Amino acid sequence: MGVVNVDFKLTEEQRMIADAAKDIAKDFPPEYWREKDEKGEFAEEFWKAISKAGFLGIVIPEEYGGAGMGVTELLIAMEELAANGCGMGGVWYLVLTEVFGALSIVRHGTEEQKEKYLPKIAKGELEFAMALTEPDAGTNTLNIRTRAVKDGDEWVINGNKIFISGADRAKGMLIIARTTPKEEAPKKTYGISLFLADLPNPAVKVNPIPKHGINYSKTCEVSFNNLRLPEDALMPPQDEGWYMILDTLNPERMSFAAAAIGISRLAISKAVEYSKQRKVFSDPIGSYQGLQFPIAEAYATLECAKLMNLKAAWLFDNNASYKEIGEAANMAKVVAVEAGIKAVYWAMQTFGGYGYTREYDVERWWREINLIRLAPVTQQMALNYIGEHVLGMPKSYRS
């Protein structure tokens, strides 16, 4: 049996990122995010802070103004921002711009595309969004209907997208469209292409959708009506974007797992603090096993999910196969969310009636953790992936 060498210590650079994230989070406590959520305001001050700290350039190579690090370091920053007061806000903006924008371009963009977008993203001058999900094609990306057709030296894009977060503010957008109809493709994964578009554009209509939480960011319907893009807007090669988009979707799942872990750590820390102070029948409620056991169990499971998430990031940063990365990312997401829901539920229970009030913030974290149950992939679809691709069970759905 071979020997496996595992080092759980953070590198000096990783510790610096974690410490920087904690320092930033001190300036943006739960009260800040409560106000932004209630007012439906973008967190401008927070955006400027993470930009100044270089967090938007973590995965961007140094020659384009970034730090030249990996997804591992990005997840460390995300989790510590979330856990130390920011909740989902500590992850959300980084996903929209650094994962959808920077990481996609770093991995698959042309040299001209890298030079155009990456320096601005690294400086915090360019917000991004990704237009993938459609009304009739949610998890099943292969069924998207948005079409990109060549017209001379231009691409013309028509179609409708939904649940496109940040589209109201983004100056750059990654658009996923079909360049070969599904019925004409030699295989179902063929015919999808990726495009980079500059916004605003009169051919792109954006309408925010009222939603349950995370109201410091708008999530929108987007329609493309004869959107014309230059030939070099295509992220090559044409028709082979399926595996390229996996390089974005897998880190997105890791990011949401990091969010679930961070939000849960934050909720648990507040619940533990309150449980030491609040007394019923002369004893602090934290001494009651009815509260201790479920919170302790959730915390232990979250620590396990964190290890799997870091494994997924390590596999990604070391160019493992899509299958290996997908297996780890989906397992991390499933476990992190299930444990996270339990953690925030029992944090709210610890506060009793106060947990239902906005003043104590737990109700907001409950709304945030429940989004992660649904996005970027539902728990059930992640379990389908594990059942089929990890365990070798029969496929439970047809695309």
Rank of each mutant, 00 (worst) to 15 (best):
K311P: 01
R265N: 05
M308V: 15
Y288W: 15
S282A: 09
L249C: 04
A260I: 01
Q292R: 15
R278P: 00
R278K: 14
A267C: 02
A271D: 09
K276F: 08
K270H: 07
F256N: 03
Y288I: 14
K276M: 09
Y299L: 12
L307V: 08
I268H: 05
L307F: 10
G286L: 12
L266T: 02
A259P: 00
A258D: 03
A259G: 07
A260N: 01
I261R: 01
A267Q: 01
L249G: 02
D247E: 13
K276A: 08
I263A: 03
M254N: 03
F281D: 14
R278Y: 13
K276G: 06
M308N: 09
S287N: 11
P284N: 09
D247G: 11
L249Y: 06
A271V: 10
A260W: 01
A257S: 12
A300C: 08
A260K: 00
D247R: 01
P294L: 12
P284L: 07
T301Q: 15
K311T: 12
G262K: 04
I245G: 01
K311Q: 13
K270D: 09
P294W: 06
I285S: 04
K270C: 05
A305I: 04
P251T: 13
A312R: 00
W314D: 15
R278F: 14
R278Q: 11
L266M: 11
M308I: 15
M254I: 03
Y288C: 02
K311W: 05
A296S: 12
F293Q: 13
L249S: 06
A300I: 06
L249M: 10
L266F: 10
Y274V: 11
F281K: 10
Y299G: 02
V280T: 08
L307Q: 11
D247L: 02
A267S: 05
K279D: 04
M308E: 15
Q277N: 11
M244R: 09
P251Y: 10
S287Y: 08
V280Q: 10
A298L: 05
F281G: 09
A258N: 00
P251N: 10
S275C: 06
M244H: 06
A260D: 02
I295L: 15
N250H: 14
T301G: 07
F293C: 04
